[in-house]
């Protein structure tokens, strides 16, 4: 019995969401049974021994030159090899760009089910259960796993990491037989301008909507985001109008985010927008229409003209930053 965690790395850096998975694996190990083993596919060891502190007892490393970039087929073979090696009861992935592509491939190889984008995991009557938002967060589905191993992907920013001071993980090689280059081959990764954090990984998000009247006024949003150390998001209306790029869109057909603070400015709060952000821990809405639906989900609502309120808010936050 054990728990296997897929260790996500890019460019030789273990991605932070991995620590969230290891944290949940560590908590699960007390009821499901341990140990917690990691599996990583990479071109070289990205410092896996350090993951002992995050909860991994052991990490299997599949090293291959194909793994310099993400390689869905090759990674799936590596995870399958690890499953055959450690016979885990549970396998955890991140519901990240990589994990969302990889986990279903592994499920199909093993002939088992997968619960994707889970926000809660538990054990009931000795059986593993998970909850996952469906219908864009309008409902929660609870599932069980009739086959073994149980495969789950966990939503980023929902599960807490742990810290076990001084622990190191044993790193062991994992053999994967692959012939030739990948059939779908990543040739390069183009960075998004500014190297900013992705919305799904941001602690604070400031989003703007059609209330901004034009793309030039997004400077107001950017200044507030700068003061708060936040990432800029947008409603679909402004993305469709070409004011902001697609990767900024929050909502049903954009990104699902769970930051600790979400500030919606000049956004009405259409059901499809709420779908992407209503699991945020704290929501602030700034809108001149007191009846805007966004106020129905906001923890703090401020009715007013954003062109007055936002500069005042930016100034107040800057003042606070200067004091602390």
């Amino acid at each position: 019995m054990s728990i296997l965690v897929f260790i996500e790395q890019r460019d030789g850096n273990v991605r932070s969401v991995t620590r969230e998975l290891l944290g949940e694996a560590t908590r699960l190990a007390s009821s499901v049974g341990g140990p917690v083993t990691g599996v990583c596919a990479a071109a070289a060891d990205p410092g896996l021994a350090q993951l002992g502190e995050a909860g991994a007892a052991r990490v299997l490393l599949a090293c291959h030159e194909r793994f310099a970039f993400y390689d869905g087929e090759g990674y799936a073979m590596a995870v399958e090899a690890a499953v055959r090696d450690v016979h885990p009861k549970v396998v955890l992935f991140a519901a990240s760009a990589m994990g969302r592509d990889l986990a279903p491939r592994v499920a199909a190889r093993l002939g088992v089910g997968l619960a994707s984008d889970c926000t809660q995991v538990g054990v009931e009557d000795g059986a593993l259960t998970a909850s996952r938002p469906v219908f864009a967060g309008k409902a929660l589905q609870r599932v069980r796993f009739p086959k073994a191993p149980a495969l789950l992907s966990l939503r980023p920013k929902v599960f807490a990491a742990v810290s076990i001071a001084g622990a190191t993980a044993a790193v062991e090689p994992l053999a994967v037989a692959m012939a030739g280059p990948a059939r779908a081959r990543v040739t390069r990764v183009a960075a998004v301008a500014g190297g900013r954090l992705d919305l799904t990984e941001s602690e604070i998000i400031v989003s703007g909507g059609r209330g901004l009247k034009g793309p030039e006024h997004f400077a107001l949003i950017e200044e507030l985001a700068g003061a708060l150390g936040a990432t800029v998001g947008a409603s679909r209306a402004v993305v469709d109008a070409g004011w902001r790029p697609h990767h900024d869109q929050v909502g049903q057909t954009g990104k699902t985010v769970s930051p600790k603070l979400y500030v919606a400015i000049g956004i009405s709060g259409a059901i499809q927008h709420l779908a992407g952000m209503s699991s945020s821990k704290c929501i602030v809405a700034i809108n001149k229409d007191p009846d805007a639906p966004i106020f129905k989900v906001a923890d703090y609502g401020l009715v007013g003209d954003l062109f007055e309120v936002v500069p005042a808010l930016t100034a107040a936050v800057r003042k606070l930053n200067a004091q602390t």
């Binding site: 088992v112 967060g137 929660l140 609870r142 906001a298 923890d299 401020l302 007055e308 309120v309 107040a316």
Partner: peptide, 27 residues
């Protein structure tokens, strides 16, 4: 089945919070 759905529930409605006030004065 490879996954068994045991329940579908509606999330507790997010209670509308507080109106902090109006305009820049409420900042």
């Amino acid at each position: 089945p490879n996954i068994e759905v045991t329940a579908l529930t509606l999330p507790p409605p997010r209670s509308a919070g507080r109106r902090v006030g109006e305009g820049a004065a409420a900042v």
